[in-house]
């Protein structure tokens, strides 16, 4: 049953040191506020996973909270590379980062397998691709009916999945709209799901086939208006693109990065997100 909690309590109640955790979002509805709360609470030795790790993964990794990252495309979307991820991989700063690298098809299938309660995902993939040589979790399987060689990867089953969504009703049923990414699968694959939403409404007021996560699939719901900033929340606000561009310079320098994190994350509160999107609401 979903509990309505503050993001502080939801993170403290659901995440532990050493957990595996997904902050999903396919360049839309990125759970920035949830990730910042996780950073403030100072977790260690996390295994983080995401198809498209972006700024929040740069932040988690740069703050030394991550032991391992499972991913398929690590970039600052529309801008370039992730400087903190690069520093960890190339120079082991602030410490070494273990990476398990996949393709999008593999990660999407692996979350779906997790949601479906299967031990692994089977798909046609990685043909001729060298990732299969550097990732021991990419294996192959012979299809029993046609003899075709198919790729197999283990199901993804995070201890905790964090996502951001548009709205919940008062029972805690959550509606996701627009670019859906792999959030439904990541929630259903997880042991516990924490969802930040823009608002709580009496009636989700949608159609019968909408993407809704029933309240009993969710551990905690937190109302954090603006919680996806600087990413988009379809119907609420557009992407605050200048933040993505500026991140490149902030993350390029270790001292600048730490100073930024101190001011804008460690000394900040979740309430700040509402202010950050105020100017974006009119245009969305």
């Amino acid at each position: 049953m979903a509990k309505f909690l503050s993001i502080r309590d939801a993170v403290a109640d659901n995440l532990k040191h050493g957990d595996s955790v997904a902050f999903e979002g396919f360049t839309h509805l990125i759970p920035h506020a949830a990730a910042h709360e996780v950073i403030r609470q100072g977790f260690k030795d996390l295994t983080v996973m995401r198809m498209t790790p972006d700024i929040i993964y740069d932040q988690l990794i740069g703050m030394g909270m991550v032991k391992k990252m499972i991913f398929s495309f690590a970039g600052n979307p529309g801008v370039g590379l992730l400087r903190r991820v690069r520093d960890a991989v190339e120079n082991q700063w602030p410490h070494a980062l273990e990476v398990e690298e996949h393709s999008h098809a593999a990660m999407a299938n692996a979350y779906e397998a997790g949601a479906a309660g299967l031990p692994c995902a089977v798909f046609r993939g990685y043909l001729g691709a060298e990732l299969a040589k550097v990732n021991a979790n990419i294996k192959s399987i012979i299809g029993p009916f046609t003899g075709e060689q198919l790729a197999a990867v283990p199901a993804l089953r995070p201890d905790v999945t964090f996502i951001h969504a548009q709205k919940a009703d008062r029972k805690g049923n959550v509606l996701i709209e627009g670019i859906l990414g792999v959030q439904k699968e990541a929630v259903l694959a997880a042991k516990r799901a924490v969802i930040t939403v823009e608002e709580v409404v009496d009636d989700l007021d949608t159609h019968t086939n909408a993407c809704i996560l029933p309240h009993w699939t969710i551990a905690a719901i937190c109302v954090v208006p603006g919680g996806a900033h600087p990413s988009y929340a379809s119907g609420y606000y557009d992407r605050d693109n200048v933040n993505y561009i500026e991140w490149d310079a902030i993350a390029a320098d270790r001292e600048k990065f730490l100073a930024w994190m101190d001011e804008h994350v460690l000394k900040a509160t979740p309430e700040i997100f509402a202010e950050r999107v105020r100017h974006l609401r009119a245009s969305a």
Partner: peptide, 8 residues
Amino acid sequence: PGGGGAPE
């Protein structure tokens, strides 16, 4: 950044 969707 990595392969993303490209390998498949």
